[in-house]
């Protein structure tokens, strides 16, 4: 096991002077061989993003109502069946990929950015500055994540006509995503959800950044940098930041799963992005009553969420073993 774990990177370095694409390909193949489940996670990630981007070409309009076909089981016409409004479940899952990918990736970028802003200086400078900043993080971490997320979404959405930052709230009922640029319809709500998720998840992430920074700071090359008179910002940006990159990549992948699960949860509760099909939303409302007779209604969106989160966790675990063995067992 221990030998196999590092194969990915070793292949990358050992390939020596071969051209970069060849080395990258070998590293990827090595990763697939050593970590099949991690590779499965990567495949899921590509799939979710790809299906999200190409959804208009993959599935029909998810908002079309086929009333005469309402609540029919999976068939060759409706692969995953239809819901009580006669909407195609497969189309809704395909379009749901857009929200999953957008919220997941948007949140991860925000979390990475925020946790670096808080964690890097806190770990690098230490002392009183660190103490003060960490007490602030303590306060933020004293709330259950979902409480803060729901509260933030509610506060940001309670707003007048011009809406949050003048973005408006978007129409209550989803537009036809097939024609027109659907993105702008959900933009205000998606932004609010990403902001809330990002702000809340950044607290825990900044702790990881901080401890990685402290560990990196102890290296002789940082000391050498101080000795030759490098400025703090130069040391942080040129020496510490590149060296905590592996940790950041692992952290981002694991946060992707967390963010998607959180988005699905608030969608299930009927909060957040309500004017566009999302996976969590498909499990809420009447689905629970209908699931007894029409199990597929709950099964497909539930499995979609499960597979995405499972895949991203697996990918994160595999990346951790390859890139940052120090973190092993921390989750």
């Amino acid at each position: 096991m221990a030998v196999a774990e590092t194969i990915g990177l070793q292949d990358f370095y050992r390939a020596g002077d071969r051209p970069l694409p060849v080395r990258a390909l070998r590293a990827v193949l090595g990763f697939i061989r050593a970590k099949p489940l991690g590779a499965f996670g990567a495949l899921i990630l590509i799939l979710v993003v790809g299906v999200g981007i190409f959804s208009p070409w993959i599935a029909d309009d998810p908002t079309t109502v086929h009333l005469s076909d309402a609540l029919t089981g999976p068939s060759s016409k409706y692969w995953f069946g239809t819901d009580h409004n006669g909407r195609d479940v497969f189309s809704r899952i395909v379009y749901g990929c857009q929200i999953t990918a957008l919220v997941g990736i948007g949140t991860v970028i925000l979390v990475t950015f925020l946790s670096l802003i808080v964690g890097l200086p806190s770990g690098y400078f230490g002392g009183r500055y660190d103490f003060f900043l960490q007490r602030l993080v303590d306060i933020w971490l004293s709330f259950p994540a979902i409480f803060l997320i729901l509260t933030l979404v509610a506060v940001l959405q309670t707003s007048s006509g011009s809406g949050f930052f003048g973005l408006g709230r978007g129409p209550e009922v989803g537009p036809n995503p097939v024609d027109g640029f659907w993105f702008w319809y959900t933009f205000p709500r998606t932004t609010i959800v990403i902001l809330s998720l990002g702000l809340v998840l950044a607290g825990g992430a900044s702790r990881v950044v901080r401890s990685a920074t402290i560990a990196t700071r102890a290296n002789p090359y940082v000391e050498a940098g101080v000795v030759i008179g490098a400025t703090n910002s130069r040391i942080i940006l040129r020496h510490v930041l590149p060296n905590i990159m592996p940790t950041m990549i692992v952290l981002a992948t694991l946060q992707l799963g967390t963010a998607i699960l959180a988005e699905a949860t608030i969608s299930f509760l009927g909060v957040g992005i309500t004017n566009f099909p999302t996976w969590g939303q498909m499990l809420s409302g009447r689905t629970r009553d209908l699931a007894e007779r029409h199990m597929y209604l709950a099964l497909f969106p539930g499995l979609a969420i499960f597979l995405a989160v499972y895949g991203f966790n697996m990918l994160g675990d595999a990346l951790r073993d390859v890139l940052d063995p120090r973190l092993r067992g921390s989750r």
Binding site: G280, S284, L299, P301, F306, V309, N313
Partner: peptide, 22 residues
């Protein structure tokens, strides 16, 4: 264990209720 981390509780609850009832 990893599956338990990834399965949404509302999905599990929906399925449990539906299966028990059916």
């Amino acid at each position: 264990a990893i599956a338990a981390l990834a399965i949404p509780s509302f999905f599990l609850a929906t399925i449990v209720i539906a299966v028990l009832s059916r």
